[in-house]
Each structure stands twice: as C-alpha cells, then as structure tokens.
Design a protein around this nucleic acid. Sequence first.
DNA 1: TTTATTGTTCGTATATTTGCGAACAATAAA
DNA 2: TTTATTGTTCGCAAATATACGAACAATAAA
Lengths: 108, 108
Amino acid sequence: MNEKKKYTDQQLRLAQVAKALGHPARIAILDFLASLDHCYFGDIHDELPISKATVSQHLKELKDAGLIQGEIETPKVKYCLNRENWQQARSVFATFFREPSCKTGRCK
Amino acid sequence: MNEKKKYTDQQLRLAQVAKALGHPARIAILDFLASLDHCYFGDIHDELPISKATVSQHLKELKDAGLIQGEIETPKVKYCLNRENWQQARSVFATFFREPSCKTGRCK
DNA sequence: TTTATTGTTCGTATATTTGCGAACAATAAA
DNA sequence: TTTATTGTTCGCAAATATACGAACAATAAA
C-alpha cells in the first residue's frame, strides 16, 4: 500500500489529453481537423513540415488519446475529429481552469 | 528555406503549456496551488507520492512554462500560481477548443 | 503483370523525460 | 560548533518520445 495519495481519474485524464496536445505538430493537426468536417492523410501531411512516417505516428497518438478517428477509404485514409471526446476534453480543461470555488460550490 | 509551413506562435505556445500539463503530478500541483493563495514546498511534497527531488523537478518545469512562481522565504520556499500566465493559458486553451468559425469571424 | 498511389509499420538513432538517492547550501537552533 | 530543517542540484538509470528512410500492404490503373 502506498502511503500517499495517487492521482484522481480527472487528473489522469487531463494529463493524458494534455500530453497528446504537447507537440506543435499535433496541435496543427487538430487545428486543421477542427476547421473542416474531414480530410485525408495526404492533406494533413501537406500541412506539416515532417515526413509521412512521423505524421502517421502523431496521428496514432491522437487516435490513442481518443481525440481523432481514422477510417480507410481505399486507397486513402480519412481522418476527422472525434467530436464527442473533443467536447469532453474541452470540458475537462474548462473545469481545470475554473476558479476552485466553482468546482465544489454552487457556481453555474 | 523550408518548403512547408512551420508552426504558428499560438500553436507553439499551446503545445508548450500542454506539455507542461502532460503529467499527473504537475496537474496535481496546479490543482493544489489553484486552491489556495500560496504554500510551501513541503506542503506540495506532502500531497504527492513522489520524492522531493522529483517534486522539485516538476516545479521547475512548471516555473519554466511560466505557470507558477517560487520565492525563497528562508528556510522555506513559497510557491504560488502565476495568475497572469494562468489566465493567458486558460484563454489559449479556450480559443483552441472554440468553434473554428468563432476564431475568424464575428463570434463574441 | 507491371506500375503508381496512398499510408502504415519496422528498424534504428538520438534526445528528452521521469525518478531517485546522495550530496550540497543556507539558515536557525542547541 | 554541532545539529536540524528545508529544498535544490548532481549523477545516474530506465523509459518514452521524436524523427526518418526503407520496406511493406492494398488497391487501382496501364
């Protein structure tokens, strides 16, 4: 048994999402995906100054964090935001930055 | 000269802050600091399941990201949020999660 | 069948992150 | 002076992250 507290689920999820956002390439990908309904791998690659292998890797991380989803449309791969988890992330951050008194009390 | 775009300052700053938030210990530290006006190193260490050397390291990262500030009050060290940068971070995230149409247009 | 297109995966190199104990610094107390 | 308190810094080990070229898979086109 540990003597000190571990982290809450909220803290773990927030850290997980923040980590996924912790690279400019991934931010650029999300900015891009948020600006349209969907697009293909090549479109994303064209937006970024890195190799396709690296883009693919960043996309995988975003997918693992639940922020985006990909779907094969042979011969292309279609990507889009996972809008549901995107809103969840938004709310997790909003809560984090909210005044502490609002988290516990009667703050709308 | 690079052929493809680099990242915008906004994207770089957001990634930098997100990276600083990308570990549960640092989230826990910020949650704690946000809940009070200030506190001392020992108080933070008591909240976390990690060694003081590691706590000190996490604090340094948060300080480097501009999210907190420390001040020596011999023999203790007082820590608190950097409220100004905290609000800036809040707004950078809020913008990021905002609908794209709101970023360019006439959205309040 | 051969060739082209579109991405993913593999293998590898390098850099960064995380974590800890030990040593250290600065001051105060005994 | 010696001892205790409070944190930081150093040195190191192990784990992750970042990046890329090459190889590969799946399909479509020639």
